[in-house]
Computed example of a mutant assay.
Amino acid sequence: MADELVRVENICRDFGQGGKVVHAVRDVSFTAGRGELVAVRGRSGAGKTTLLNIIGGLDRPTSGKVFIGGQEVTSAAEQQLVTLRRDVVGFVFQSFGLVPILSAAENVGVPLRLAKVPPAEREQRVAVLLELVGVGAHANQRPYELSGGQQQRVAVARALANDPQLLIADEPTGQLDSETGRQIMDLL
């Protein structure tokens, strides 16, 4: 595939040892192209989050390989993974993962700060993203002052901040009502 972005080859992830081994992910392989939406389905505890964490470089497989943009990430050094997560991959976590003491705008700005984007450009991008996800009026509010849907929108804006090539969203609508969930999926 000429525009292949992700290639997963025979990924397995085990936890534990001896007779207490849990096979969280077993022999998963697939490819995904740029601009393609891929959904991972399965029952609770089937290993979906583990697989997404491996693809995004947050966890390492027991065996198998993951390539993002042609670069193998499963054997990459930690600094390479930091660069990958900062510059290539955006994450929308199941539990939002917002920093409670930061405002919505500050949460969205974190990836831009890490990428050393100049303050004026960072503030402008944050404002655009918050408007894009429909929470521009809540820029100065802390996560605990926002509804679940608003928090998820802030999490989506943060994931999009550095214009990632790959967006990994782990149950991005799992904690939302159906209408807000539809809006989030439309946004993604």
Rank of each mutant, 00 (worst) to 15 (best):
L98F: 09
T50R: 12
T74D: 01
Q141F: 10
S44R: 04
S103K: 08
R85V: 00
L51H: 05
V126P: 06
L102C: 07
Y144T: 13
D87N: 09
F91P: 08
G64A: 09
G42C: 01
V135K: 07
S75C: 04
R113L: 14
L58T: 12
S75V: 11
V108S: 06
N53T: 13
A139C: 07
Q141L: 14
V40M: 12
G109T: 00
V117Q: 04
F93I: 13
E72C: 03
L98E: 11
R122T: 00
T62D: 10
V128Q: 14
L130C: 09
Q79L: 04
A39T: 04
V88I: 05
R85Y: 05
G45H: 08
V88R: 07
A104V: 03
K48M: 09
N53S: 14
I68T: 06
I54Q: 02
V128T: 15
T74W: 03
A76Y: 00
D59R: 04
G136K: 10
A39L: 06
V128Y: 03
V89P: 12
P119S: 15
R41L: 14
E131S: 10
P143H: 01
E78G: 14
V82W: 10
Q79F: 00
S103T: 15
S44W: 14
G47T: 05
V82F: 11
I68V: 12
L102H: 11
L84Q: 07
G90K: 14
P143E: 10
R113S: 14
I55N: 05
N140S: 08
L58S: 10
